[in-house]
Design a binder for these strands. Structure first.
Lengths: 240, 240
DNA sequence: TTGACTAACTTGTATATACAAGTTAAAATA
DNA sequence: TATTTTAACTTGTATATACAAGTTAGTCAA
């Protein structure tokens, strides 16, 4: 699978945690034991364990060992980058993506600010509605720089754009900055979503960057209030 | 300051980024150059750089070098664990903390579930209102296990509880899990907050853990809709 | 001029060693 | 028996070395 030794060890240990072979509260084998099991060096094991720790799967305790944390306490652990498709699969709920708009536009002032582009450049605009259990819950407005994504189709947008970008176009998505806040709903929200009585929506602004730190996508995701939920895991640095 | 070499290098580089000595888009010195500057080994430099990368301050590009990311684009970068006091200071806005309740309680069913305690154990309950620019915006309900925090006072709660816990009690806060959602406001919200016309509040549930992975605090933070904002930085792992 | 190659850089991975520091349980001592 | 000490574990930090792999700029040859 993975060419990287430490990443494949990370994946192996992660799957053991997810399958319940390593249960919450339980100690996993010590670094030296893992060195023997995987026939590698301690530093390589430590790289894998540190990744697990950063992502909230284990807690390393000096002098004692590493214990498995209880991640399942949250029913959807979506801290980090994850696409709608991945999320829907994880929840196991019937869901559907409806492409409402798919066109190439010239950036207006708002878009120029968010995507750092000039008026000359062309932008893919994709508007999609996410339907979960028959209700139109999320309105996604995606903007891609045409420089990075030369071609898009309704079909691709209905499946998973990320899969297409990473597998077909070989774009390496590296990191994203997200911003959340609540806003009064506008005409567009009322048009596309089943808003019920709600007067506000949760807005998630997402800036997605490639490997070389170039911004290639700006997304505005508008969620119906009652269906929004976000989970975050954070470690504190001690400066001793 | 820090006993750790790599942490003190991290702090040094971070302050250079924050002061603008290293500007966004600019390359920082290569790992080998930093090895000479700090008179240390490359692995130690790499530990510092990887921390900067994980926290979204730099982007490392193979074969090229590390460039400084534009973190200032968000006006308050509070991804991760940060206390109200730290945040208010960063924003430079006049703020005040009002302690509304401070007592020892026996856990009810809800609390038993959130804090994993038995009916016999005693719990500190702290209810505080956060006032920013004269408006009562945030309602914080904190619950501490008395086992970890034997003593609390109104004075401590008005200043910063975290400072007291870390400096006085020497508790090592290690990580936290947060959960966000929107809820209809209740009687308590209306009593303590200046809610204006808003019918909903943003609820942040925060579970704080110590070094040995023991849960010692549960916090429910209730924000007025229009004043809530959250920023997140996430990296994507490539399994290649 | 153009293109291919090379050399000198960059970061990434893997290994080995040494010692520090925290934990635990058995062994030695009072 | 109760306490202290020790030895054997655990993870954390720091160093050194080697090579892989990506980038860049200059050199050389066609």
């Amino acid at each position: 699978m993975s060419e990287n030794k430490y990443l494949s060890i990370y994946n192996d240990l992660l799957s053991k945690i997810e399958k319940g072979i390593f249960k919450p509260g339980m100690k996993i084998p010590s670094e030296n034991q893992l060195v023997e099991q995987y026939e590698t060096s301690r530093e390589t094991i430590r790289k894998a364990l540190n990744l697990l720790s950063e992502h909230g799967y284990i807690q390393k305790i000096k002098g004692k060992g590493s214990i498995v944390l209880d991640v399942r306490k949250f029913d959807f652990p979506i801290s980090g980058l994850i696409s709608f498709k991945e999320l829907a699969q994880k929840l196991g709920k019937p869901s559907r993506t409806i492409v409402e708009q798919l066109e190439i536009v010239k950036p207006d002032e708002v878009l120029k600010k968010h995507l750092h582009v000039t008026t000359r450049e062309e932008i893919w605009k994709v508007v999609r509605v996410r339907e979960i259990e028959g209700e139109r819950i999320i309105l996604d407005k995606d903007f891609f720089n045409k420089k990075f994504v030369p071609f898009l189709s309704k079909d691709i947008c209905e499946r998973s754009i990320y899969e297409y970008l990473e597998k077909e176009l070989q774009l390496k998505i590296s990191f994203a900055k997200k911003e959340f806040f609540v806003e009064e709903c506008n005409e567009e929200d009322r048009m596309y979503l089943n808003l019920k009585q709600y007067t506000h929506v949760v807005v998630v602004r997402n800036y997605v960057y490639l490997d070389d730190a170039s911004l290639f996508q700006y997304t505005e995701s508008r969620h119906r209030l009652d269906k929004f939920r976000f989970v975050d895991f954070a470690r504190r640095i001690h400066l001793h």
